[in-house]
Design a protein around this nucleic acid. Structure first.
Lengths: 217, 217
DNA sequence: ACCTGAACACCGTTCAAGT
DNA sequence: ACCTGAACACCGTTCAAGT
């Protein structure tokens, strides 16, 4: 006697995100997600093959409203700014989920569509071949790093306060900068760093040196 | 009858890193680290209070040879390039440990000393107040993001190959870029992206706009 | 077909016991 | 003091059973 499915995948993802928001990423388990839905743990396996698939479902759910279309501004750096800002906006309400998105970035279809659009902007701006690879990876490295910093250690968080209390003799600049940091908003920090990267991209072709600074001499 | 300690903290950290290199970050457990040393699991708790402290020990061990002194080049961007390259070099042999370092970045003394030196370079270059905060956080965001990308998805890794096999109709640029990416070395990628950020920093004062692109309108 | 609960092999950590 | 092993409360997942 077949019963109808009691769950939409959307509800499962939303429940998992609710757990993350309340208990952190470490608090998300198959058991806690099931409990959030009032189901047995094993019932989840009707909807996802394993925990990995649940994480992917969460990523798609987080980005469900992400506009991956080209912004269409005549200035290409402005388009990249908009595209990065949209991702940040999608995650703003769920900062603790950021590491989960980064881990699943290469399998999440929405991320792939977003990346295709970013590449369209870069291509129209004249980037090609290895330069386009480096421009994309550099931009995305900043985006992930910035979102991760916001997620793990907000500027007004405990880590910053700890640094502001460091011994002045050993860490004078770190102390001063950490104190000042508490007055910089997360939005200004993100926008300011992104402006640096975009100015660097606009300033010319990217490097094509043979050896990186971290490579063996 | 007191027995002498059978272990130096260094040996514990080295054993934990050996496990990470062999079995990945998920493979590091109190049990696996103890087994690597031929001790009982609980013996480790003579040397660290908990798993968190073991992770911190690993971070300090990974950076034990990191030179945190100012490079002393007359060109300040070159100094930042050197300082970032040193960190990358310290982690080159242990890529799987990168997420662990990022998670512990605010408690690791070596990271703090490195940051103090970076701030010295930025200060000498004329950065101050909020601009210095944003320059530091932007540079570090790139550094963490780039190391994380190298750690989680190397340019010649499975994720890139998957993207290169995407349907050409939906992802033409992503396909082409992923194919091209396999021919870009990790060192060139890191150096190229870093050059973008440094060029952006050198190009002028950082942004002081009131609202970020990911903030609510 | 959908859902459940017991069970298995893990995990970090507490605690009492051995030398 | 240093180290051990059993035990507890977790975890993801397998499997047999219920409706």
């Amino acid at each position: 006697m077949p019963r109808p499915r009691s769950l939409q995948p959307d509800r499962l993802a939303a429940a998992a995100v609710a757990v993350i928001d309340r208990a952190g990423l470490a608090g998300l388990t198959m058991r806690s997600a099931a409990q959030e839905l009032g189901m047995s743990t094993m019932a989840l396996y009707r909807y996802v093959a394993d925990r990995d698939e649940l994480e992917l479902l969460v990523c798609e759910w987080l980005l469900r409203d992400l506009d991956t279309g080209p912004p269409g501004d005549p200035i290409w750096t402005k388009n990249l700014q908009t595209l990065c800002g949209r991702v940040r906006r999608s995650l703003a309400a769920h900062p603790q989920a950021v590491p989960l998105l980064i881990a699943n970035r290469q399998r999440c279809r929405t991320v792939l569509r977003w990346t295709e659009t970013v590449l369209g902007v870069l291509t129209a701006a004249g980037f090609d071949d290895a330069d386009r690879v480096i421009a994309l990876r550099g931009l995305v490295a900043y985006l992930y790093g910035a979102l991760l910093q916001e997620s793990l250690g907000p500027l007004d968080g405990a880590g910053t306060r700890t640094m502001a209390a460091l011994p002045a003799a050993d860490f004078p600049l770190l102390r001063a900068t950490a104190s000042r940091a508490t007055t910089v908003s997360a939005g200004d920090e993100f926008a300011g760093g992104l402006a640096v990267v975009l100015r660097g991209l606009a300033a010319g072709q990217v490097s094509r040196s043979g050896r990186g600074p971290g490579d063996p001499a």
